[in-house]
């Protein structure tokens, strides 16, 4: 107990040493980028939601890096789980057929009924957040995570043989791979029309300036949703 108290005091001191300068310093924050975005952001990118405009327009390169980080994280988790799963698989899996419900103590009829009805609604909301990311709060990452929650709901709610293709591991893995490939192709495509890496290739032809942001949002949403969904489904022991 004494050791943990010393540890927590040390942690508090460390945190305050890191955070305090931020509050105490009288240094003026840089305002150039902020003012530029506030004045010209909507006009330049065509997206009302400036957060989307920044992370898919001005800072799309960072977003590409983030998706790679997510891909590596999901791959690593799945790799570890596949190795550990061989031992743990037959103890109590979520995917038992109806008669073998005895060992399946964490899965009740209540859970099944609620999640199977709620899953499609959550999926729909996720796609809404994804598609309208340039207008309202949300975007590819947020929508993707909501889609992943919907997929997990469907996986929890599907009883035995009435499972949909959306909760199959190979399907989700394929969706993620194709989405990442599309993202790479799209990011290169700007170069061929003379706009630059990750720039809108149809900037001078399209009447809807936010079109590229919408496409990127959809692809990133699919990728994030499929990736996190497949990770959770493997964790739940679903085949």
């Amino acid at each position: 107990m004494k050791k943990s108290a010393v540890g927590s005091v040390f942690a508090l001191l460390l945190i305050s040493a890191v955070v305090l300068p931020v509050f105490l310093s009288s240094y003026q924050w840089p305002v150039t980028a902020r003012d530029h975005l506030e004045l010209k952001g909507v006009e330049e990118s065509g997206a009302t939601n400036l957060v989307s405009a920044i992370y898919l327009g001005y800072r799309a390169y960072d977003t590409l890096g983030e998706t790679i980080v997510l891909l590596v994280a999901v791959t690593g988790t799945i790799g570890i789980l596949k190795k550990a799963g061989a031992v743990l698989e037959d103890r109590h899996s979520f995917a038992l057929p109806g008669e073998m419900r005895r060992a399946n103590y964490m899965r009740t009829h209540l859970l099944e009924a609620v999640t199977s009805k709620l899953g499609p609604i959550v999926l729909l909301f996720g796609f809404y957040v994804m598609l309208y990311g340039h207008l309202s709060p949300g975007g590819g990452f947020q929508g993707g995570v909501v889609v992943a929650s919907g997929i997990v709901f469907l996986a929890l709610g599907s009883s035995g043989n009435a499972s949909s293709a959306l909760i199959r591991q190979d399907m989700l893995g394929r969706i993620e791979a194709v989405a990442f490939l599309m993202l790479l192709i799209l990011s290169i495509s700007g170069i061929f029309t003379g706009e630059g890496f990750l720039d809108n290739p149809l900037k001078h032809y399209s009447s809807l300036p936010a079109a590229f942001i919408i496409v990127l949002n959809i692809i990133i949403g699919l990728k994030v949703g499929a990736g996190i969904g497949v990770m959770c489904i493997i964790m739940l022991g679903k085949e």
Binding site: V129, P137, G138, Q142, V145
Partner: peptide, 26 residues
Amino acid sequence: APDVAITEAAVGAGVSTIIFVWIIRH
């Protein structure tokens, strides 16, 4: 910060809870 709120609700309350419950089960 509604963007962050959506992410926090979906990741924090949804996905990470599932992961923790999975770990506790095992």
